[in-house]
Design a protein around this nucleic acid. Structure first.
Lengths: 130, 130
DNA sequence: CCGTATCCCATGCGATACTG
DNA sequence: CAGTATCGCATGGGATACGG
């Protein structure tokens, strides 16, 4: 009787939030913006995250079909993580969220401190033919 | 030495997520989409939320300048909550998030169950003259 | 009507050590 | 290199009771 990570949602919004909530997921996804990344690349790029959290979050994101995990049968082993199409579609939302966050910090600059206003690289997706 | 709710963020994205994360905030904000709402209206409209959580979350949202709290000096007392401009700007993000969530649920329909695909009312903001 | 105070538990996450 | 296992604590949130 293992615990279900997605019990049952009352609506799609709740489901969406469950995917991006948590301390590390957005940071991890940010690292994949410019293409596939190896486990060790992601780990080195995110300060303060333990290996336990990285692999746990990666497994959950894979389970949710946000990213893919590809193992290369080499020595030493190589594993690469990359966005699925579903994952790529989060980019524009993250871009908008970060812009809103900057505005939020401006409005609350008297009470909230921030080290670096924009440390993410989410961008508007390039226009594609439909 | 009271605990700081916003310790210090490394970036604006982190700050943005801190505002909308938590079990109830998006649900509460959703209730304000069509204009100001009274405390009791919000409470009745959200199933399963205790009064403690409602007032706690409302205070935090007020502190973060997402909404305003207006007390009417009447008997019986009346208190109304409404979006600030900053709060209103979240609407388009929530709209996009909910749409993405619907897609997410479709892709994962084999493993994730949902009661009601769209229970929120976030909309694209109406165009305004700049 | 509109809240607060207290208590308590589940979960998320960190620290550390170990493995194919 | 790319992970897993175990332990333990801090925090978020539920239940319940009380206050202006």
């Amino acid at each position: 009787m293992t615990k279900q990570r997605h019990p049952e949602y009352t609506c799609s919004m709740e489901a969406a939030l469950s995917v991006i909530s948590g301390k590390w997921k957005v940071k991890i996804l940010n690292q994949l913006m410019d293409g596939p990344r190896r486990y060790s690349e992601i780990r080195r790029s995110i300060d303060g995250m333990t290996e336990k959290m990285l692999s746990q979050q990666l497994r959950e994101l894979e389970e949710d079909k946000i990213l893919t995990r590809k193992v290369y049968p080499e020595v030493p082993p190589r594993v690469e993580y990359a966005f699925t199409e579903l994952g790529k579609e989060l980019a524009s939302i993250f871009y908008a969220l970060e812009k809103w966050g900057a505005h939020f910090l401006t409005v609350n600059s008297d009470t909230i401190k921030v080290a670096d206003a924009s440390c993410y690289t989410f961008r508007e997706p390039v226009a594609e033919a439909v």
